[in-house]
């Protein structure tokens, strides 16, 4: 049993290495585009952080948080955005294309998990240099809020959990592609939900906050870890995060199966 699990993991890792390798080879053919993607992300990080920094020149708190706390939250979210952009974002756009053109047939035929081959196929190589930028921003703001040693140890675990919840929620939205004629537009819904999640939960008024922390918990991606790290290590936030991951994994599995049943293979 143990050997079987190890063999499966190593098989998937080797497939993923091949995916990454072909993505790198492709990116190196378009070097200027590679550089432009780095500039684009740096522009995005700079303007996001600068906007909040400017706001704090005029106010002392936003909700219960002071400048350093909200800047830490933002740098955490930018790191999640960075992981998302580097590891999965391209695949969402490709899914729309594959469903519309019937190219998904080839993914279904592969002897690996279709979710894996669809959503982890494309890696963005510009993420390698950007890792140093985003992690430096996160560490800098972590030092500013004086995270304890325990919180520094918890930080990578929380990043992993937040990223997992984010991609599960977005995979679930992406399944709507199977029922739509205009498949591209679902990506814009996904992007709007990302924008909503880039602000802490206390920013939103009662009803939106309830909806986006329970029915579709996009606010939990950043707010749960930030509350845990900044407001006294209450483990209920980690419990919420884990519960959301488990529940929405089942939701994703259900809708993905239904979606595949709905898929009528445009090319055949």
């Amino acid at each position: 049993m143990k050997n079987k699990i190890t063999a499966t993991i190593s098989h998937y890792l080797s497939v993923y290495m091949s995916f990454a390798s072909t993505s790198f080879a492709k990116a190196m053919d378009f070097r200027l585009n590679f550089i432009l993607l780095i500039i684009l992300d740096i522009c995005f990080y700079s303007t996001t952080l600068a906007s909040v920094d400017i706001l704090y020149d005029h106010v002392t708190t936003i909700g219960p948080w002071k400048r350093d706390q909200l800047m830490f939250f933002l740098s955490f979210m930018l790191f999640i955005d960075y992981l998302h952009m580097s590891l999965v974002s391209e695949s969402f756009w490709q899914l729309s294309f594959k469903v519309r053109t019937g190219e998904l047939d080839f993914e279904i035929l592969k002897p690996i998990s279709i979710l894996f081959s669809v959503f982890f196929r494309y890696v963005r190589p510009s993420g390698v240099p950007l890792f140093f930028v985003t992690s430096s921003i996160l560490i800098y703001h972590g030092l500013k809020v004086e995270l304890s040693l325990f919180n520094w140890i918890m930080l990578p675990i929380l990043i992993f959990l937040s990223f997992t919840l984010r991609i599960i929620l977005e995979f679930a939205i992406a399944t709507v592609t199977f029922w739509m004629v205009e498949t591209i537009s679902i990506n814009f819904v996904r992007m709007q939900l990302q924008s909503l999640g880039r602000w802490p939960d206390f920013v939103y008024s009662s009803y939106p906050k309830r909806i986006f922390t329970t029915i579709f918990p996009i606010l939990m991606v950043g707010s749960a870890p930030a509350h845990f790290l900044l407001e006294g290590n209450s483990f209920r936030y980690i419990f919420y995060l884990l519960a959301c991951i488990v529940i929405f994994s089942f939701v994703l599995k259900y809708f993905w199966k239904k979606g595949l049943d709905q898929y009528d293979s445009a090319s055949s």
Partner: peptide, 19 residues
Amino acid sequence: QIIGPALVFFFIKYNLWNS
């Protein structure tokens, strides 16, 4: 693609400034 993002962005800004 055109109307949705503008409205969502306004919704976020409204909530942010309210806060």
